[in-house]
Write a protein that binds this DNA or RNA. Sequence first.
DNA 1: GTCTATAACTCGATAGAC
DNA 2: GTCTATCGAGTTATAGAC
Lengths: 189, 189
Amino acid sequence: MRTRMNREDRRTAILDAAIAVIGERGFHGFSIRELALRCAMTDAGLLHHFGSKTDLLLAVLDRRDMQDEHAIAALLPHGAAPRSRAQVLQVLAAIVARNAQHPELVRLYAMLRVEALAADHPAHAYFVTRDRMARRRFAELLNLPGEAPDRLARQVLSAMDGLELQWLQEERGFDLVATWNETAERLIP
Amino acid sequence: MRTRMNREDRRTAILDAAIAVIGERGFHGFSIRELALRCAMTDAGLLHHFGSKTDLLLAVLDRRDMQDEHAIAALLPHGAAPRSRAQVLQVLAAIVARNAQHPELVRLYAMLRVEALAADHPAHAYFVTRDRMARRRFAELLNLPGEAPDRLARQVLSAMDGLELQWLQEERGFDLVATWNETAERLIP
DNA sequence: GTCTATAACTCGATAGAC
DNA sequence: GTCTATCGAGTTATAGAC
């Protein structure tokens, strides 16, 4: 007896599988057929829900954005008012803790961020916009007395991304949050 | 009039072009044909020099290893004796300065490191071995009084990789070496 | 809504002429 | 040593049956 799925559940299942498979092989490296197999359907069936391979990728990014937007917005305080170092460290720890619970997403973004360096990659524009916004938000957060927020934001953001990739490479063999906290403690004066 | 090339020059030209194209599209994303076009030859002609796509990738990594081994070995001092903080910072700056002069290589390794997280990627074993060795060397270098070298090596190495990727993302729009020095100054106690 | 069938193309790799 | 020609398999995407 085959499982029936309504439209929305089916789309969700495909997008979840797409996160994993694109994170593993990259946009160029995965095939619609391979993804469809993981969803126990044919490639034609999958393309009924998402018109093309590119549209599927954009749908993945779109949905993640909507979901993450709420969580990140709740973590990052608004306004340019300086805040205490302890507050900043706490916000950063919360972001990393959240990522530690979703390694497939960390991997997806690590993969796409490198692939999308190419100007003709379907996610190029997305990452240009997204990363500029991320730097702006971090600069706002890191607006500490006597610091250059832009430079510090660049260092903190890249150290966070780098450590998360290292964590995937070592197969999550160390405590990401604890190690990050040690890094942040030193990086932020 | 067509340019004549001997075997070694031709192989070198192909490998140089391969560094660029694999860095842009990844191992899965580039085609032998595309690479051959950049070298003004056919795919069959290219495969005469490197038997297969996988062999070509391994040849790229092999040659880079041999060339880099000399440079890195000259920079990294041997032995486990503790050394001064200033010495350590100087070695790290020299490594980053070297990378800043070869953005295509930084991009190649950034791409392959993520792709090779997959156990069936042709460079998986290479990166497992290479990164373990890098961590060991850095831990040796960072054997500073009162520190846990392994933990510190992980943080320093990942921060360096992360900043280099950020530098590519911002199209080399900031001074990589100066920014790294500021990071290292804070990260290393 | 998912299938089969197929179009139109590109892939890596090989064989053999020159 | 590089070419043309070609193979078989793989790709995205579409058309139409059910």
